[in-house]
């Protein structure tokens, strides 16, 4: 089943420092709202084998984020990462490497912990955090990732909070899931049952969904301390990009501004794209699903980011402030 691309076995592994991580040297075929093939490289992230040692004269950009950055829905060659890489290489006249460190379900704290424990090994010149408003809550739902905590007014990364029993069972059984498509399918089904999909799947039209009370009240997010500390701790290499459909909290933006962290917002660009007849950036016509950015949206995001990252790179080079205008690619 793996050879036929029907079901890729589990691609997750465990590392004492990074926590739950990707299994290196794994080829995958993914079907969700889109379809893609790819490879987790020998270093355990998606894309080409860019080694931790960076070649001199190369600009290296690390992209951190959740499944939007991970982009399992389309081939690397169509992802915004590749567009940025190609455009910046051409426009800056130097080799540019864009490293995809996106991980499904990651929030700001996860991204920060990932940067500190893993990404920084690759010596990126720029680290772009792709965030949405929800990512600022920093719930860190995955029990097997290092936790970012505030201790004595400082942000710290710790692995001590991983539940031992959960960790043990994961470590003992991972070999089975990494090598069996059937077990992976069973695991997927287990998750679906846990999400309450058993009866809707079995009874189809005969299943009557209990109406849930819609929560229309807009959550007035109070940015947690850990998010504030992370933002305060951002180095000069960090760029923050709002990938969500809503503005990031003002409190958080204020810290970015105080810290002189460059901030980009994809919301306007994607809205302009949609309003100018470009279509819904989240709609996938083949599977007729709403989901992550589609091919066109990746083009738009790639063009926008390559323009703005170029400005930031040039600004850093020249140390002259350049005003960043929203551009429609």
């Amino acid at each position: 089943m793996n050879k036929a691309g029907i079901q890729t076995p589990s691609t997750t592994d465990f590392d004492e420092v990074i926590g739950r991580t990707r299994k290196s040297n794994v080829e995958f075929t993914m079907f969700n709202e889109g379809f893609s093939m790819g490879r987790i490289n020998q270093y355990g992230y998606l894309g080409p084998d860019y080694s931790p040692e960076k070649k001199a004269g190369t600009l290296r950009i690390a992209l951190l984020g959740d499944s939007y950055v991970e982009s399992f829905q389309l081939y690397r060659r169509d992802q915004f990462h590749s567009i940025i890489e190609a455009k910046l290489s051409q426009n800056l006249g130097m080799p540019v490497e864009v490293l995809n460190f996106g991980r499904s379900g990651f929030d700001l704290a996860d991204m920060y912990a990932y940067q500190q424990t893993f990404v920084k090994r690759f010596h990126p010149d720029l680290v772009v955090y792709f965030l949405s408003e929800a990512d600022l809550v920093c719930t860190q739902t995955d029990p097997l990732v290092p936790k970012a905590i505030v201790s004595n007014g400082k942000i710290e990364i710790t692995n001590a909070l991983m539940p031992a029993d959960y960790l043990n069972s994961f470590v003992k059984t991972k070999i089975l899931f990494q090598n069996s498509s059937i077990l992976q399918m069973l695991n997927n089904s287990r998750k679906l049952i846990k999400e309450g999909q058993l009866f809707p799947k079995l009874f189809d039209k005969f299943y009557i969904q209990k109406s849930k009370e819609a929560n229309h009240a807009k959550t007035n997010l109070k940015v947690p301390e850990v998010a504030i500390k992370i933002a305060e701790n951002f180095s000069s290499k960090v760029v923050v990009c709002n990938r969500g459909t809503e503005q990031l909290s003002q409190g958080f933006l204020y810290i970015l501004e105080s810290n002189q962290t460059p901030y980009l917002d994809l919301n306007d660009t994607l809205s302009i794209y949609t309003n100018s007849g470009g279509g819904d950036p989240f709609y996938w016509p083949v599977t007729k699903k709403q989901g992550h950015w589609n091919y066109q949206a990746h083009q738009v995001v790639g063009n926008y980011l390559s323009n703005h990252l170029e400005l930031i790179v040039r600004e850093n080079r020249d140390k002259k402030p350049i005003e960043v205008e929203p551009l429609l690619p």
Partner: peptide, 20 residues
């Protein structure tokens, strides 16, 4: 299910956007 549908997932994506 295991041959037709699984092969069909790939076919559908490629035939819908062959230019890619």
């Amino acid at each position: 299910v295991m041959i037709g549908d699984t092969a069909g997932r790939i076919v559908d994506h490629i035939f819908t956007q062959p230019g890619l």
